[in-house]
Nucleic acid binder design. Structure first.
Length: 575
RNA sequence: GGUCCCGUGGUGAAGUUGGAGUUCACGCCGGCCUGUCAAGCCGGAGGUCGCGGGUUCGAGUCCCGUCGGGACCGCCA
């Protein structure tokens, strides 16, 4: 039907007779014998000059045949890639009339209520922003797939109807028709199947996998999302990180045209110590500075004997923060678990602060030195257990300094050596797994699984970009003895382990190779590379925060006979 | 489960101390217009102020509830 795409035509095409198809964007009429129509397809806008009286309205679908010509002097539009030319002698064929759209199919729709955009997603998708985002997404998928193929990974599809497992995220359940009362689950991830692919000798597996989790939605979380899922046999952590890094950097290069530098690494402990979070945003400073030594023999009761005292420096912020805002910061700190928050405004004479009188001259001087503080800066200090101090200041640091996630520069970082166990279950007194119970302990720490479990590091790692967790992975345990020791530390008896994980672990007895893997979220990576701070903008048909789709109105009730076939009866809503 | 913000013609907004559905921009419909480009000019249509209750002589505005949307916490081994 067409010879060219609207956005592709240039001065070099002048003189050609062309046919273009698309939607009518803006139309500017100048009486009966002259009208300008901006024709739109996914490639861009093209001005068509119509000299006969044709009634075309917004979003009519048309085919226009005419001749490419240079625009007259003084009428070139430099803000349009096709702005030097136009189509003249137009013959217009209306392929489909259209009702006026509920919102403009251009950048003005960025301000439209997202619920309206989602209700008319097919119109929203016509816009250049959404077309661009869909294409960024396709580029990411393609680059990732190519990179994995290049490295010898084999794409294997794993099932969507899987057994329900009690661990991890809440699952979506699918009732079985043939076995009423029994259920499949939709996979939270292909974890089980990919590890058994290693037992099955696949060696290097990958999949662009759809994962489903029935947990509350956020800007970076949907019920269903895509992961680059991978697993490799006979490898070290470095092998996995290199393979994944190759895929991620290739995707970034495909979208941005430039390959990012090698991904740096930081240990979990350093990330917590310096940034107070396990997904540090390296784009800005405001690092946590240790002040514990400064106050070893302090008279100030709130600091005396604290396990960890740290501060962050908010440059030049002393005058911006009034008492009201400082009180809010204090409330925020308490909400995260701090006993309190000490603020110090740096002045010529010393500190302006409610606690200034409790600090010795020497302590004040050391704080200023340690924090590299200047007059006009604001210092926020927390004294508590190490984890609490880090977490509170890390949260305040993000609150006060973190730019929108999509803003450059892109800072990728591997966070390595996550602890094997995190915290203690308050009811059982057993440590809780940090990643999952099949995560391999760090070889240097294996001896302490029984004696000091909370100090044991694991070979587990996260990939972080601009403060967003892109994904995580680990080297797995493939030997039964080590697995037994970790289960024992978790308080899982052999019988329980067999009941809960036997279906997964028994196959290992037939010869599981050493293996490890990773999975990272393609929606999150795509959003950041596309310059969006919400993954809904890079998903064609996303759901709202309540899990609904305004376009299809799902979820919806189903007919009673359908439920009956499945052996399901719906109970009235409990109050 | 929790905290906070939002809801006014198709879209985006303004709406003062509680005083008539008032206003602005875009869009839509009609007219004029031969070089515009988010065209210009003239005219017109279009609203159960999310919904329900309450206070009041009187509610878009105040109060309570509820629904919908968003950000975040919990949750996401």
């Amino acid at each position: 039907m067409r010879t060219h795409l609207c956005g592709d035509l240039r001065s070099s095409d002048i003189g050609k007779e062309v046919s273009v198809c698309g939607w009518v964007g803006r139309r500017r009429e100048h009486g009966e014998h002259l009208a300008f129509v901006d024709l739109r397809d996914h490639s861009g806008l093209l001005q068509c000059v119509i000299n006969n009286n044709v009634d075309v309205r917004s979003e009519f679908v048309v085919r226009i045949t005419g001749v490419v010509r240079a625009r007259p002097d003084g009428t070139v539009n430099n803000s349009l890639p096709t702005g030097e030319i136009e189509i003249g002698d137009c013959e217009v064929e209306i392929l489909r009339r259209a009702d006026p759209p509920p919102f403009s199919i251009d950048d003005r729709a960025n301000d439209v209520d997202e619920n309206v955009r989602l209700q008319y997603r097919y119109l929203d998708l016509r816009r250049s922003r959404m077309q661009r985002n869909l294409r960024v997404r396709a580029k990411v998928n393609s680059a990732v797939r190519t990179a994995m193929e290049r490295q010898g990974f084999v794409e294997v599809e794993t099932p969507m109807l899987v057994p329900s497992t009690p661990e991890g995220a809440r699952e979506f359940l699918v009732p079985s028709r043939k076995s009423p009362g029994e259920f499949y689950a939709l996979p939270q991830s292909p974890q089980l199947f990919k590890q058994l692919l290693m037992v099955g000798g696949t060696d290097r597996y990958y999949q662009i996998a759809r994962c489903l989790r029935d947990e509350d939605l956020r800007a970076d979380r949907q019920y269903e999302f895509m992961q680059l899922d991978m697993e490799m046999s006979f490898v070290t952590q470095d092998d996995v990180l290199n393979a994944v890094g190759e895929a991620v950097l290739s995707a970034a290069e495909a979208v941005l045209g430039e390959r990012p530098p090698e991904i740096e690494r930081i240990t979990w402990h350093d990330a917590m110590n310096r940034f107070g979070v396990d997904k540090p945003d390296l784009r800005f400073g405001m690092e946590l500075m240790d002040l514990t030594e400064v106050f070893v023999s302090t008279e100030f009761k709130a600091f005396a004997g604290a396990e960890s005292i740290k501060g962050i420096l908010v440059e030049g912020a002393a005058s911006e923060f009034g008492r009201n805002q400082l009180d809010k910061l204090t409330e925020r700190a308490k909400g995260i678990g701090a006993k309190g928050l000490v603020w110090l405004k740096v002045t010529e004479g010393g500190f302006e602060s409610p606690v200034a009188k409790f600090l010795s001259e020497a302590e004040a001087q050391m704080v200023r030195d340690q924090m590299h503080a200047s007059v006009g800066d604001l210092i926020l200090v927390v004294a508590d257990e190490w984890a609490t101090t880090c977490e509170v200041l890390g949260t305040l640091r993000n609150d006060l300094g973190r730019p929108p996630v999509h803003e450059g520069p892109y800072r990728y970082v591997w966070v390595v050596e996550f602890p094997l166990f995190v915290g203690v279950d308050p009811t059982t007194g057993n440590p809780r797994p940090g990643h999952h119970p099949f995560t391999r302990p760090h070889p240097d720490d294996v001896d302490r699984i029984e004696s000091d479990p909370l100090s044991v590091r694991s070979i587990a790692y996260d990939l972080v970009l601009n403060g967003w967790e892109l994904g995580s992975g680990s080297i797995r345990i493939h030997e039964p003895e080590l697995q037994r020791r970790v289960f024992a530390a978790l308080g899982i008896t052999e019988e329980e382990a067999d009941n809960k994980f036997g279906f997964f672990l028994r196959p290992f007895d037939y010869g599981a190779p050493p293996h490890g893997g990773f999975a990272f979220g393609l929606d999150r990576l795509t959003a950041i590379l596309a310059g969006e701070d919400n993954i809904r903008e890079v998903i064609a048909y996303p759901k709202t925060q309540s899990g609904a789709d305004p376009m299809t109105k799902s979820p919806l009730p189903v007919d009673a006979t359908v439920l009956s076939d499945l052996g399901i009866r719906v109970l009235p809503q409990a109050d």
